[in-house]
């Protein structure tokens, strides 16, 4: 079965023709070379493949490309050079959030989604906001602190 699916990725119109059951992560990583989207588990459990679909954080490994027809998808590549993206990347680097890094692009996406809807989160809000993203290296404390740092440094950016 071949379908034609139109959606936008990082602001660019994209047309996919092929099996609509193809996983979104494969289209992003392989067809569009957006390799900042990582596969940690392939079953929606780890969050490494997190992207933002129409403003909501989703795991691209369990979404068939057929389900994003007409959607707007944002990946790490689409935010890293925006003010908000830079603020987060800088805060993660400065705050010591990054170890092996495999979970980190997904964490940045989760933080972006969180701060975009809640510019002044509590520690509890932050922990909940990244609870779908597994990190095996950091024990999370410095990721949480780095997100707080992004809030402080970003100021109005998140309002």
């Amino acid at each position: 079965m071949v379908s034609r699916i139109e959606f936008s990725v990082n602001g660019r119109k994209t047309v996919f023709s092929g099996n609509p059951l193809t996983r979104l992560i494969d289209v992003l990583r392989e067809d569009l070379s957006l390799t900042g989207v990582k596969e940690g588990c392939g079953e929606g459990e780890c969050g490494a493949c997190s992207v933002i679909k129409d403003g909501r954080l989703v795991t691209s490994c369990i979404i068939p490309v057929g389900a994003v027809n007409g959607s707007e998808i944002l990946t790490i590549e689409g935010i890293r050079d925006t003010d908000k993206g830079r603020c987060l990347v800088d805060a993660f680097a400065e705050g010591g959030a990054v170890q092996c890094g495999f979970c980190i692009p997904g964490m940045v996406m989760a933080a972006y989604a969180l701060l975009s809807s809640n510019p002044n989160p509590s520690e509890e809000d932050i922990r909940r906001g990244i609870s779908g993203n597994i990190c095996r290296c950091t024990g999370y404390d410095l990721i949480v602190e780095s997100i707080k740092l992004a809030v402080r440094k970003g100021g109005d950016l998140w309002a």
Binding site: K38, R80, L88, F92, V98, C100, G101, I104, P105
Partner: peptide, 9 residues
């Protein structure tokens, strides 16, 4: 290595 990893590069 932090920025390159966080930027997905």
């Amino acid at each position: 290595d932090a920025a390159a990893k966080a930027r997905g590069e």
